[in-house]
Nucleic acid binder design. Sequence first.
DNA 1: CTTTTGATGCCCT
DNA 2: GGGCATCAAAAGA
Length: 183
Amino acid sequence: MIDLLDRPSPEVARLLIGALLTFEGVGGVVVETEAYDPDDPASHAFSGPTPRNAPMFGPVGRAYVYRSYGLHWCLNIVCGPRPGAAVLFRALEPTLGLDEMISRRGLGDPRRLAAGPGRLCQALGITAAQNNQSMTAPPFRLEPAAAPVAVVQGPRIGITKAVEQPWRFGLAGSPFLSRAFSG
DNA sequence: CTTTTGATGCCCT
DNA sequence: GGGCATCAAAAGA
């Protein structure tokens, strides 16, 4: 697993599509990710280490959890091979712990349970308490896709810099994406 | 259906 | 003080 993560973030982001991600037994199949790179103006790591982004400069496989817009949590996994790279988990296809996710999110539509980074964290119960924790050991579970999957690619969402980098990846045709891919 | 708006915390310059 | 790697609800068409 670690060797799979110890690569440039766009490569890791692509490889994580179709993987299984759970926290305390709740989660599902990764259907949407985004890559962030140290040389990437859209990345929190672009201006070097700070108290907030410190996990991004630590060991590969740790979680980087940050608060978004004052309300939501967003979950990244730190990857390599250079410090300051990470992949943002943007959407899951819910498969394990459905009841838990439904009660946390307050709705039943499985397509909206974990479609979006903030929703995903709410469904799994991810908060700042998980920041800098290892995602390759319990209570996390992260297993690569058993078989190759069809991956689509496009521009990242919600950013204003480096918009042209096509570093958003998705499971082709998945109904559980936060937004459809154009191409 | 699409677009707009308000909620809201905190990091960083 | 500016600016967000967002989301749900409201308003428009």
